[in-house]
Nucleic acid binder design. Sequence first.
DNA 1: GAATTACCATACGTATGCGTATGGTGCCCA
DNA 2: TGGGCACCATACGCATACGTATGGTAATTC
Lengths: 193, 193
Amino acid sequence: MKQESRPSPQLDRDAWIQAAFDSLADHGVDGLRVEVLAKRCGVTKGSFYWHFRNRQDLLSAVLENWKDGRIRDILKQTRAEPGEELSCIRHVIEVYSASRNRKGMLIELAVRDWARRDATAAQIVRKVDSIRLDCAGRLFRACGIAPEEARSRSLLLYAYVFGISLMSVERNDPLMAGQRQTISDLIAGAKVS
Amino acid sequence: MKQESRPSPQLDRDAWIQAAFDSLADHGVDGLRVEVLAKRCGVTKGSFYWHFRNRQDLLSAVLENWKDGRIRDILKQTRAEPGEELSCIRHVIEVYSASRNRKGMLIELAVRDWARRDATAAQIVRKVDSIRLDCAGRLFRACGIAPEEARSRSLLLYAYVFGISLMSVERNDPLMAGQRQTISDLIAGAKVS
DNA sequence: GAATTACCATACGTATGCGTATGGTGCCCA
DNA sequence: TGGGCACCATACGCATACGTATGGTAATTC
């Protein structure tokens, strides 16, 4: 009988994948090395090659896992009650651009870096982006914004949240809080001044 | 007498740095290896270690070179005649978000990826960001925008242009042209609809 | 309780990459 | 014209990392 509640002392495939996400966030794809990962897991690579055919096998699994998680997350975060679409948009902006959820953003950036040099990763990023833009666009249209502009604002929204993570600004600065609010207003389409 | 017009058949320090930028754009910092670089230059690493103490020496030089180039570029691009500030802003947005200048953006992204794991790189990126925000803020204020909002719009501007480069959208799509225009309007503060 | 299975360690060969040491070659200049 | 210098090649030792082969162990199964 399988014990699912208590984490097994043995490593399974998913445990390796989760550890891979940690390494991905900290060191990027290039820093994701199986022997290093094994050391971090307290085992040797003999274990790794039991669960995975090779390094690429792990990378593919990481990508698929990331894709599924992102899609699930998007659908969850953009599900808004009628009339709550605007606050939903603001919430999405806030969740992504805040300094919390830092690890998730580091993974996001690592995957996008990955996608610049790997066709498979690029394809998955395109897919995730496509869904994100669709979901956000739906929210904007529900706010009464024309389809064309809704798509533009969606693009601006995600470009902003990813871009702001690339910039070395102090995101915990209380002075930044007001600026983030202003930017959120600009993207969401509210009045600023 | 030094020949400056004709490129020397010998490699000098700057030639190595330029080649390093190519490698940086294509493979990131982690892919910037001295033996690989030497092969690309048609020489062996014996040449490299003549011009540089070690790999870190090259990386530091690349960083400094990037910083100087960026600062020079910012000052040049944000120098606007009185009354031309708005078009100057739009021009900055267009230059960065367009698919041309692709190599420059790849280097930009590589350096920012680098900065996430290296304190020196992070410091230089902060410096460049600071100057960029100051220069853009000056343009916005010249357009009659309040200092607070000017800073927010500057932040949005650069976050957008870097973020859009992270997204795998078809930037050559003629459909995208209209959206980029709409976004440019939103950032610059023009009317959209 | 013997055999099978799941999981992991160890050892090996190969490749890549760093940094050093040393040797070679063409050019400049006294 | 011969020594010195700038520039580069070659060879070495070392470290890391991939993938494979094989051996070990604990738990499960029959």
